[in-house]
Write a protein that binds this DNA or RNA. Structure first.
Lengths: 238, 238
DNA sequence: ATTATTTACTTGTAAATACATGTTAATTTA
DNA sequence: TAAATTAACATGTATTTACAAGTAAATAAT
């Protein structure tokens, strides 16, 4: 484990308010304390408070109205994996049970990889793993993950059963996901996908291809995610 | 037409830099001028410049690295309708040709509408329209739009062929889209969808349900969008 | 009683300043 | 020559101050 760096004030306030919203302290439609009140309450200045509120607004937890205030917007989020912001892990990972299909192994990058790779990435090879994630015992996500093998000693030996991949990267390697790009398609399930997601062949499946940026400018995470959206939708902000 | 309000400095700079990136003045991987240089160049202070850069970063046009600078990230965006920010209309509407299936008509809201409505919205009824949008003569989007009938005089009489819906709302009613929520699913094409998108029945189609917020706190735009993602993907940031 | 107006309070925009922290290259030291 | 240090410069965080602009309720005028 690595000692965490000091957390900025605006992020602390972000986390506090976000938790209050999720816990129902502030409910849908409620007015948050005004910016000046938050300044007093938490001993910060307005720009700092505004930075917290701005992030909350971008993540969809509040809506700001000039002259009125910040209104809580805690809508029923289906499965919010679209907004994996640096601080948030979206709909609680706790609710998602994970099973490992292919344990992390070191291998070459696929020849026709979905994103273009830097020379550095190509040379170092990739760590590969496959997982299926369940929500209430229904398989929802079939994830194929790729990470460049850059300064991640012993990662293939770690236990992935309980902890999430993000959590391990954060705790042991100080790597934080900051954001990323994604492509979205609807495709028919092939044999493999239909088996893992308990669907019929040719049934529509949501396919996400994501490239995630980290606090290490050279290190990216890639994943190809197949989603069963029969019962649950994917939720997002724009 | 309405006279536009004064545009804030940080948005002007946002637009300038965005245009430069799209026009190739700054190319993929290039380093943008430093914040202090931009201050000098455009006669602004650093907080103002930083606000522009922060928005560019959120929209995926640059990536910021502490100590290094802002690096251009103008990746080939497939069809970027996921990021309809207030200032951006994503992949140029000019490339999309639109045909009207159902001209704007005033009607009651559907009984089982996809989002919950306020009393005000219910009472005022909705303006309904259907469109198909083509990219290089291939039908890509089948859009069903709903707008509450609030202070939008004569809207059903306007010409929608050339101008986009957003453009009409901005030019004639001063309504700007600021963001919104969406749900995403993969579904099988029904008869209607398959006809409009030139697909076989049961073929996978991307279904977006969006609720868009405007600068009028009481006015929302809703749309149900069916996408043919066989050739093009939907692109997004998170 | 109804309509204007004022007032107080909200968020939005902007400047000026300071220091922290990460990156890079030049410089110094061994 | 090679490693360590330093200096210059980049973005990150934070404070302080000021005014603009939108909202809503209290107040005054009709």
């Amino acid at each position: 484990m690595v000692t965490p760096k000091t957390i900025p004030q605006y992020r602390k306030l972000y986390e506090i308010l976000r938790k209050h919203i999720l816990d129902g302290v502030y409910k849908e439609g409620d007015l948050l304390p005004s910016e000046n009140e938050l300044c007093q309450l938490y001993g910060m200045t307005r720009p700092t408070v505004r930075q917290s509120l701005s992030t909350l607004s971008n993540d969809g937890y509040i809506r700001k109205h000039q002259g009125k205030g910040s209104i809580v917007h805690n809508l029923p989020r289906e499965i919010g994996i679209l907004s994996v912001s640096g601080t948030t892990s979206a709909v609680g990972d706790r609710k998602l049970k994970t099973t490992i299909i292919v344990k992390p192994v070191l291998m070459q990058w696929p020849a026709d990889f979905m994103f273009s790779l830097t020379q550095l990435e190509k040379e170092s090879g990739c760590i590969y793993m496959e997982r299926v994630r369940f929500l209430e015992d229904i398989p929802i996500f079939y994830d194929i993950s790729y990470i460049a093998n850059l300064n991640l000693p012993r990662i293939t030996a770690r236990q992935f059963e309980n902890k999430s991949l993000f959590q391990i990267l954060r705790d042991y390697y100080r790597i934080e996901i900051k954001g990323g790009d994604q492509r979205i398609k609807a495709i028919p399930a092939n044999t493999k996908i239909s088996r893992f997601l308990h669907l019929k062949k040719e049934q529509p499946v949501l396919h996400l291809e994501r490239k995630m940026e980290t606090n290490n400018p050279d290190l990216f995470l890639y994943s190809s995610i197949f989603c069963n959206t029969e019962k649950y939708s994917i939720f997002g902000r724009f």
